[in-house]
Amino acid sequence: MERLPLGHAGPALTRLAFGAAGIGNLLTPVGDEEADGALAAAWAAGIRSFDTAPHYGLGLSERRLGRFLEDRPRSAFHLSTKVGRILDPARGPIGSDLVNGFAVPATHVRRWDFTADGVRRSLEESLARLGVDRIDTVYLHDPDDHLEQALEEAYPALEQLRSEGLVGAIGAGMNHCAPLARFVRETDVDVVLLAGRYTLLDQTALEDLLPTATESDVSVVVGGVFNSGLLADPRPDATFDYTTAPAPLVARALRMQEVCVRHGVPLRAAAVRFALAHPAVTSVLIGARTAGEITDAAEQATRPVPDAVWADLRAQGLLPGHVPTPEGDH
């Protein structure tokens, strides 16, 4: 699978990356065997970029990913994790972490920490869970409500870690464009990770973030290209950004699906290929729980989408005329 470097000269990412929140039991339990199967299928498909975080299953995602990668050559894969949440041991009765979105025992509690010491502690604990001695990319994770501290304390700590060689590239990951654009303008990040805001249904990132990243030679990794389900399988009970999809968005997605089906391609293929078409986008991050999900995503990423699909989507007002699409990129 093709690889592109991050930012100015950072470590390379495969065009498709494996998002490991699902194998951290996001919303529903996933067994060890099933998680290993998903990772093995990603590897078999040529995916060599894996993204995780302490937040995902209170460290379960990192532990599972570390076990899978331990027998692979360290130079063969790109590994990213995140800082900003410290995992402290829970005191008192241990319940479920589903209130925070993960079907795991609540053995720990998350504590926001964007101090320099917090960044180093979080990274050290991630290295231990993953069983590696360096991380290729480290993101500040969801610093939306802690933006000033993240810029003034956490970011300089990451910059120092990069200069020490403990991490290869640094960045920030969020669901919102404006604060990521601020990181691009005000810091020397290599990459930003944006979830759900550059898709067939939501091109908010075109307003500021993507042009700014292009001008600054900062890479963008796009997650959530299916908007948490609606663009993978549009139907009335589908989810959009992890909540029930509004009826107008369902109708729009169904119209997009009709266009794709008429030209013999799945909507999923158009969703992945669309995100990859913007010149600022280095990689698309696909969250998967099963081997079938990630194998399908890899197939869609390389499936030719006829130019007529993009022309029809524009003609029906389903895509703005100015958005980049991969015409001729077959």
Results as ranks from 00 to 15, higher is better:
6 L>I: 10
7 G>M: 05
16 L>A: 03
23 I>Y: 12
25 N>L: 10
28 T>I: 08
29 P>C: 02
29 P>V: 09
32 D>S: 15
33 E>L: 07
39 L>Q: 08
39 L>H: 05
40 A>H: 01
43 W>P: 05
45 A>P: 07
45 A>L: 13
45 A>Y: 05
49 S>R: 05
51 D>Q: 02
51 D>M: 06
52 T>S: 14
61 S>H: 08
66 G>W: 08
66 G>Y: 03
74 R>E: 11
81 T>G: 06
83 V>Y: 03
87 L>R: 14
88 D>N: 15
91 R>D: 09
92 G>M: 02
96 S>A: 06
98 L>W: 00
104 V>W: 11
114 F>Y: 13
115 T>S: 15
116 A>S: 13
118 G>K: 12
119 V>H: 07
121 R>E: 13
121 R>V: 08
122 S>F: 04
122 S>Q: 09
128 A>Q: 13
136 D>L: 07
145 D>H: 14
146 H>L: 12
147 L>R: 05
148 E>I: 15
149 Q>L: 15
149 Q>N: 06
150 A>T: 11
154 A>K: 11
155 Y>M: 15
155 Y>N: 00
166 L>K: 12
169 A>Q: 04
170 I>N: 07
179 P>L: 13
180 L>D: 04
186 E>M: 14
186 E>T: 15
187 T>P: 13
191 V>M: 11
191 V>G: 06
192 V>W: 12
194 L>P: 07
196 G>R: 03
198 Y>E: 00
201 L>A: 11
206 L>F: 09
214 T>K: 04
215 E>G: 07
219 S>M: 10
223 G>L: 11
224 G>T: 04
230 L>F: 07
236 P>I: 07
246 P>Q: 01
249 L>M: 12
249 L>V: 04
254 L>V: 11
255 R>I: 09
256 M>P: 05
257 Q>T: 02
258 E>Y: 02
259 V>R: 00
260 C>Q: 03
264 G>D: 09
268 R>Y: 04
271 A>R: 00
276 L>D: 03
277 A>N: 13
277 A>E: 15
292 G>T: 09
305 V>F: 08
308 A>N: 04
310 W>E: 00
311 A>P: 00
312 D>I: 06
314 R>Y: 02
318 L>Q: 04
320 P>F: 01
323 V>C: 13
323 V>Q: 12
328 G>T: 01
328 G>E: 00
330 H>I: 09
